[in-house]
Design a protein around this nucleic acid. Structure first.
Lengths: 203, 203
DNA sequence: TTTTTGAATATTTAAAAGAATTAGTCAAAA
DNA sequence: TTTTGACTAATTCTTTTAAATATTCAAAAA
């Protein structure tokens, strides 16, 4: 029973994710998603209450994948630096693979920064909590010293975000979709940043 | 001759700055600025070719004030940390005092990130150069070790920007104008960030 | 009872047209 | 050289209408 429902929901998520990641939320219609799955539009609403809800489910799915991947890697290493660098690379990869998916989230924020708590807020917190866990590896290892794990993780995450907005502010080539070089560029800055940051926390 | 022209231009800048800082570029008309100065609109165009040019002149004036203030302070101290913390505080102050002035710049960027080179780009570079100079104090002092001053200054600046965007993304109260507490909050994060960053560069 | 659909409705977006505001010009006066 | 009032051009704001798309629902299929 419920097994079948979950399976169908997963299939829908899969297809919707492809469309959203490729064309973005705005340029994807429910009709198109339904057609991809070769069933009726109305059935989509049987499994998901509305488009926004479907989008959020896709977001959650993508974030989960990324977080799980990083957590699994983190179990195989005891060095904070390795763990964090892996996390940074995963974030870059996820971002470029799903660029247009995230665009809707940021447009939501632009329009109404106040309601961030509902939209991207929870995802931000989950990522921050992960960085908190990663930093803890270093603390347990006596590599670094951190007073407030959560606060420091947030600080680090803000810095990483800064690399992104900073670079997109400076040398954007032709706009629209950041080029592979730009992703590389951002990531390289982020890596340098992480190294300085960690050294700043070292015992 | 030219002395009088400069004086008049300065007066115009003064008035325009007040309007721009208070109501923003969009909500300020050339007619209003002219009325404030009790002379005709046409005369504004005698001293400044167009509104955008006038705006840029105001921007430059404000940035200059901030940079000068920081440079002067920097001469009185040999500690990088003091210099940087002063710079951070000055930036906060300038930002809150001229919040709506900057809003136009960011809206320009939102619309067309490509042409950033023309608009805010130069100002960004001047601030980065200043941070470069400030870091050099620490290098000369043997407090810190830096390979590439400019690159590191840029990194630092991006991190500072991250604190700003990060916090405005998270806990914005009622939107529109950030509250004094929010400025405080951002600045406190920036200060913590700078300290970790500097420690990460320490010899 | 659960899943699926076609057709109907309700919202949102897009485009067009017109009015109103505001930027920018110019010939002439001070 | 500096200043202005009157003029034109460009931009923004509203309103309207049409089209696209999200969402609902009663009924059929499984």
């Amino acid at each position: 029973m419920s097994k079948n429902v979950d399976l169908k929901r997963a299939k829908i998520l899969e297809v919707a994710k492809r469309r959203f990641a490729h064309f973005g939320m705005a340029k994807t219609t429910m009709a198109e998603i339904a057609k991809d799955l070769s069933f009726s539009k109305a059935l989509l609403y049987y499994y998901f209450p509305d488009k926004h809800n479907l989008y959020m489910a896709v977001m959650e799915h993508v974030i989960n994948e990324m977080i799980d991947k990083v957590d699994i890697y983190a179990q195989t290493t005891d060095s904070v630096e390795n763990a964090l660098l892996f996390a940074v690379e995963s974030r870059t990869a996820t971002t470029r693979e799903n660029y247009n998916l995230f665009e809707y989230s940021s447009s939501l924020f632009m329009k109404n920064p106040c309601e961030v708590g509902k939209n991207i807020g929870p995802y931000f917190n989950r990522v921050r909590d992960q960085y908190s866990r990663l930093l803890k590896i270093g603390v347990d290892n006596k590599e670094i010293r951190v007073d407030d794990l959560d606060e420091t993780a947030e600080l680090l995450l803000f810095c990483l975000m800064g690399m992104r907005s900073g670079i997109l502010t400076k040398d954007l080539n032709d706009c629209l979709f950041p080029s592979p070089e730009e992703f590389e560029h951002i990531q390289s800055k982020q890596i340098k940043m992480v190294k300085i940051f960690l050294r700043g926390l070292s015992v």
